[in-house]
Write a protein that binds this DNA or RNA. Structure first.
Lengths: 251, 251
DNA sequence: GTCATGGCTTGACCTCGATCAAGGCCGGAA
DNA sequence: TTCCGGCCTTGATCGAGGTCAAGCCATGAC
């Protein structure tokens, strides 16, 4: 369906790292007109670390995709107990086509840049462009698997296993994992405060702190400051997660 | 897009209660050919209560939709700890297009009838029929919301709140809720054993039993036998769930 | 009838993680 | 420099829920 006559925007933005949705859902498979249409309804927003992007219950007139930085998705009970229900990393999707009100709080954990699309036009475009919907279905199914994996963690794992699991997941996802050090060490920064980790794991921040200290004292991890983590032996860490030896988390 | 010339199968199966996917995803919006195609790749299976329908890791060459009965979705750790991650009621979808191996155990909790579709043809049909994918996206997003709501329950609620929440959810879903008794009482049967409830709530069966007894002794619920529950005052039950007063769970 | 079985309840006890409290560390403002 | 506030650590204590154990009750086999 590619129109040869028109210039192809895909050529202008070959890698398109600035806008994951367009890259992952559209570039590779859709034609020029749709790309241009997406271009017209998109805009960028950025938030400093700590700022709330969306409050649960707010009206949302856009959907968005994380470009850089980290955000969290969380719910809070009347009495203040809060549970994080998702961690949003670059390329993750925010918002739900077909729903007008936000269900969760979205908070920027680090400085954050998102690529927004006005919701109505996006929905219209989606209705006409199956690829976008299919890509979204794929992403949603992945998120569902991650949520269910997390249910096992929240319901059945011990505090120590929870901490080990979280560290393993973040380590796996983190870019700096790839250039593995000579000694197969993994080094990365925790993108979350102890409190945020507690909210994610269904623990208190004191318990998080104690368990992190315990893992450090036993040599499962090493710490520089409170954020920078070195994992000398990834297998050993995995053994602490309680997961099956081989793969474990899909997150 | 309806073809006037051909007989419309939708007329033959106006309510189509025997096959929710076809009904909800297709009947109302797609044309004859697709309906007939679905017809050709579908078949029914039934399982007695207690039987495992699919084991995690099994190869799955079908997707399916619950026609009647109740099934559960659960994961088990190496040492036997298990966590239920979903409750499948009639019209719920089983399986994931694009994935060949089952991620979770599916167990029939009551006698169960499912409507299966051979996976490859279903995927092919889906690629050509946007409505099916859209419907599936909608259902998946709902499941994701339910899973996240459950994460709050697992991570932050007390045993008593968990039990109250589960009872409220089941009561809401249950058909016999509608013909509300004169005194606004709600009566229904728990479709789960105490052990299954424990697996769902991240508790032990003893704790479930104790908390159910406590709610009974305090008059929040009444019991006939162990399964049949009467809720004399639904508001009072809701007050025990820890949820916001108004709506609460979307499940 | 009796026996076995599966599902449930209840009690006694213990442990893991929450709670309460104090203090350390570090970076930024004055 | 000092001071302050955010973030983190550690200790002491408490309690919700887990664990272990005994027993109940209904059903079905024999």
């Amino acid at each position: 369906m590619t129109t040869a006559a028109k210039p192809r925007p895909a050529d202008r933005v070959p890698d398109c790292v600035d806008c994951p949705i367009r890259h992952r859902a559209v570039c590779a498979r859709c034609e020029t007109d749709e790309l241009q249409e997406l271009e017209q309804i998109k805009y960028y927003r950025s938030y400093p670390a700590g700022q709330t992007v969306v409050w649960a219950g707010d009206r949302m007139d856009f959907v968005a995709s994380v470009v850089s930085g980290i955000a969290t998705l969380s719910q809070t009970m009347e009495d203040g107990r809060t549970q994080m229900v998702g961690l949003l990393l670059p390329s993750d999707f925010i918002g739900r086509p077909g729903r007008d009100d936000a269900t969760y709080d979205v908070v920027a954990t680090s400085d954050l840049v998102v690529c927004c699309f006005r919701k109505r036009p996006f929905e219209t475009l989606m209705a006409r462009t199956p690829h976008i919907g299919q890509r979204l279905l794929e992403m949603t199914l992945d998120e569902l698997d991650a949520a269910r994996e997390w249910m096992l963690l929240l319901g059945r794992k011990t505090a120590r296993e929870k901490i080990a699991s979280l560290i393993a997941i973040i380590a796996r996802r983190d870019a700096s994992l790839r250039p593995t050090g000579a000694a197969r060490e993994v080094v990365f920064d925790l993108p979350l405060t102890r409190e945020a980790m507690a909210d994610y794991l269904g623990l208190t921040l004191e318990t998080v702190s104690r368990q992190v200290s315990a893992l450090r004292k036993e040599g499962v991890i090493r710490l520089e400051g409170t954020r920078r983590v070195t994992i000398p032996d990834f297998e050993r860490l995995l053994a602490e997660t309680g997961d099956d030896s081989d793969g474990g988390f899909l997150v």
